[in-house]
Design a binder for these strands. Structure first.
Length: 221
DNA sequence: GCCCAGGTGGGTA
DNA sequence: TACCCACATGGG
């Protein structure tokens, strides 16, 4: 049987309350943040964003006008700074080319096409692309990340081997196709993963999802 | 000092 | 396809 994903989200919402993701002022900031937070704690991504803001570079035209070397200095606190500077330049170049630098226009484009184009950019993988789709373009898609996979595996809702795509398909089938809902859902999985379902603590005591197994059985999907 | 973090892409068997 | 590794800073 399939896990009651909706029930998981409800439990998490009861426990943590609304998370109000994504923490950004503009769709372009979402794009930048999505790249900077790759395999990096948000606090460090935030330092880099603060640097960009202070440099007046938190807008497409300004960022793309920056010398790569200068951009590297600004995003250094986020780690992988050479790679991330390159990705930001490529991503912004795409935005300038396709939408005249107006990230608000992402909302008017077909989701499938947008996802394909984003994934073609070197350094933009499924999670980054989906985060941009969901939080910048308002596309109702469920973002899967390391926390989500670990939480679902630990609480019996993910069979061994289920990967990004299969979990996303499950979410598409089980969760409401609503961007606000899915934005909260993803944030809630991050919240519980960060707070309770730690790598080195298989029992995750106090976790709001403890004992949560739909019909008491292992999930299959 | 060691481990980990809101991933991704390239290389090798 | 299935691993293995580089990429890098900053906090616990």
């Amino acid at each position: 049987m399939k896990p009651d994903l909706r029930g998981y989200v409800r439990s998490l919402l009861d426990h943590f309350g609304p998370q109000g993701w994504w923490p950004a002022e503009t769709p372009f900031e979402v794009m930048v943040g999505a790249v900077l937070t790759q395999n990096t704690v948000w606090a460090n991504a935030e330092r880099a964003i603060a640097n960009l803001r202070a440099a007046g570079a938190l807008a497409p035209a300004a960022l793309s006008a920056l010398p790569e070397e200068r951009l590297r200095e600004l995003v250094r606190p986020a780690g992988y700074f050479r790679r991330k500077a390159r990705v930001l330049l490529d991503l912004t170049a795409w935005l300038m080319e396709r939408f005249a630098g107006d990230a608000e226009l992402l909302r008017g484009e077909s989701a499938e096409r947008l996802r394909d184009e984003l994934l073609r950019i070197r350094g933009v993988g499924p999670e980054t692309a989906d985060s941009i789709l969901l939080y910048a373009a308002g596309v109702p898609i469920f973002v899967v990340d390391a926390y989500t996979l670990r939480v679902l595996a630990r609480h019996g809702a993910r069979p061994a081997g289920a990967d990004y795509e299969s979990v996303q398909r499950l979410a598409r089938a089980e969760l409401p196709a609503d961007a606000d809902y899915l934005g909260e859902a993803h944030a809630l999985f991050v919240a519980v993963g960060k707070r309770f379902c730690l790598r080195r603590r298989p029992h995750c005591s106090g976790c709001p999802l403890n004992g949560y197994l739909p019909d008491g059985g292992p999930a299959e999907f």
